[in-house]
Simulated scan of single mutants.
Amino acid sequence: MPSDAAVRPVVPAARHFGDEPARQGAAHMGMWVFLASEVMLFTALFTAYALYRLAYPEVFHLGRTYMDVTLGTANTYVLVCSSILVALAIAAVRSGRDLVASVLLIGAALLGVCFLSIKGAEYVHHIHDQALPGAHYAFEKFAIPGASLYFTLYWVMTGIHALHVVVGVGVLSVMAFRALGGSFSAAYHTPLELGGMYWHLVDVIWLFLWPLLYLV
């Protein structure tokens, strides 16, 4: 008698959700769920920031004066431009211009690297001033109760965001090579759309961090 493996029906790969539109819908739904979890993470951080700002209003007001507004604003423009390039890349794929899409994605990834470089320069400056998180805080020019808490929140919030930027740069790089290899078409470019959604969220989160830490 034939074994169970011999008579077991072969299920086509990636056919769990029926036809192609259903599979693409499921992929988008999964990404929306993932992005919602990311929003919950940063909502918790923003809530902590708001609560501690109410407890130490003077500290958080003075803390802004030690932020480099020029670098923070430059990084805002860098991420916004990067998001625009990703949107243009998706439009290029939909019109069959794979090479253009690849170049745009590489440009977006390079802007992400630029963002990280600028942020790294800020971190070096804070480290030099010993404006470090937690028990490592020793910034003599800003040595009032609650100051270490302000910089702890700064490091945590911007650090987690920077980690997301690193992941996003990797995703954009992979999408650029896939676009160059002809993996996408006007009918199928779901991975690129999902990667773009993630990158846009990274941009939006920074648009909240920027005024909180540099302007308000």
Results as ranks from 00 to 15, higher is better:
M1L: 14
V10A: 12
V10Y: 13
A13H: 12
A14C: 14
H16V: 11
R23I: 11
G25K: 14
A27E: 09
A27G: 08
M40N: 13
M40G: 15
F42Y: 04
T43W: 11
A44H: 06
A50G: 02
R53I: 01
F60E: 01
T65I: 13
T65P: 10
T73E: 07
T73Q: 11
A74L: 15
N75I: 00
T76L: 14
V93N: 02
L104V: 00
I106K: 15
L110K: 00
V113L: 15
F115S: 07
K119L: 12
A121L: 14
E122H: 09
Y123F: 11
A131W: 01
L132C: 03
A138W: 04
F139N: 08
P145W: 11
Y150K: 00
L153M: 03
Y154Q: 01
W155D: 07
V156H: 00
M157K: 06
H161S: 03
H161P: 02
L163Y: 13
V166F: 10
G168H: 02
L172A: 09
V174A: 10
A176Q: 04
A179I: 08
L180I: 07
S183D: 12
F184H: 11
A186M: 07
A187S: 14
A187Y: 12
Y188I: 08
P191G: 06
L192M: 06
E193D: 08
E193P: 05
L194W: 03
G196I: 02
M197T: 04
H200K: 03
V202C: 15
D203F: 14
W206F: 09
F208A: 06
W210L: 11
P211T: 03
L212K: 01
L215A: 10
V216E: 04
